[in-house]
């Protein structure tokens, strides 16, 4: 079953730069997909359009049957609640503890306190940070901060987890740790899309891989087909 369908999407920025050219692709429920490509290939723009940070200039993007491109700014939150997003720079609240950072995503929806507590502890356990709940982001390593960001992204139980260069700032060993967490999340049924330029990781995980170049799909590899190549 297709969870995300992109039909003939193009994106031209106001500066005149076209980041995506007539791109069509779909992602199935429960898939783990890597989007790779050189800097400026359009991979970040593509996922920004998925969580409606950007709108396509033309074409359609369906997530669970909803055309994301048509959602107004005011209603963006409706689609955001179905997705979890993780960034290279973690985007954590520096003055809130690990627990508060994760709980924050549930509190705004009025989830009862007990339920928040259970859910937050559960995801912190999943990402391996249960014992650091009371610490502040600046007391954690980069890898740990990214785990907090992942915990926050999945605490709502989203169907899709989008990761924009989640290991961009991390060393190889830490990066693998993050990937293991993402794999574990994927095994629980969440569709995971990871944008990266770290081909080492892509090579090791043997997942479906989409290679972008100048806003177009250059190549696609089914699960297990990808072999390390320079990008």
């Amino acid at each position: 079953m297709e969870l995300i369908t992109i039909k003939h999407a193009s994106k031209t920025y106001k500066t005149g730069v076209t980041a995506i050219h007539d791109l069509s692709i779909s992602f199935k429920k429960g898939e783990f997909v890597f989007l790779i490509g050189a800097t400026g290939c359009g991979k970040s723009t593509l996922i920004k359009m998925l969580y409606r940070e950007e709108r396509p200039t033309s074409g359609q993007i369906f997530i669970g049957g909803i055309d994301v491109a048509k959602i107004t700014n005011r209603k963006v939150y409706k689609i955001r609640r179905k997705l979890g997003v993780v960034f290279q720079d973690f985007k954590l609240l520096p003055k809130a503890t690990v627990y508060e950072n994760v709980a924050f995503a549930l509190e705004i929806f009025g989830v009862p306190t007990d339920e928040i507590h259970n859910k937050v502890i559960k995801v912190l356990d999943l990402v391996g940070l249960k014992n650091k709940a009371k610490q502040y982001p600046h007391q954690l390593s980069g890898g740990e901060q990214q785990r907090v960001a992942i915990a926050r992204a999945i605490v709502n139980g989203p169907k899709i987890l989008i990761c924009d260069e989640p290991t961009g700032n991390l060393d190889e060993k830490t990066s693998m740790g993050i990937m293991n967490v993402l794999e574990a999340i994927n095994k629980l049924g969440t569709t995971v899309l990871v944008v990266t330029h770290d081909t080492e990781i892509v090579n090791k995980l043997k997942k479906r891989v989409v290679v972008l170049d100048e806003g177009r799909i250059l190549k696609e590899y089914a699960e297990g087909e990808y072999r390390h190549e320079a990008i």
Binding site: Y51, R74, V76, Y77, K78, R80, R81, V85, K91, L92, L93, F104, A105, I108, F109, R152, A153, N156
Partner: peptide, 16 residues
């Protein structure tokens, strides 16, 4: 601003 961006990101509506 960062805090507001994060709030939007995790699905907070404007009123939230």
């Amino acid at each position: 601003k960062r805090e507001i961006d994060i709030m939007r990101l995790v699905g907070a509506s404007n009123i939230n």
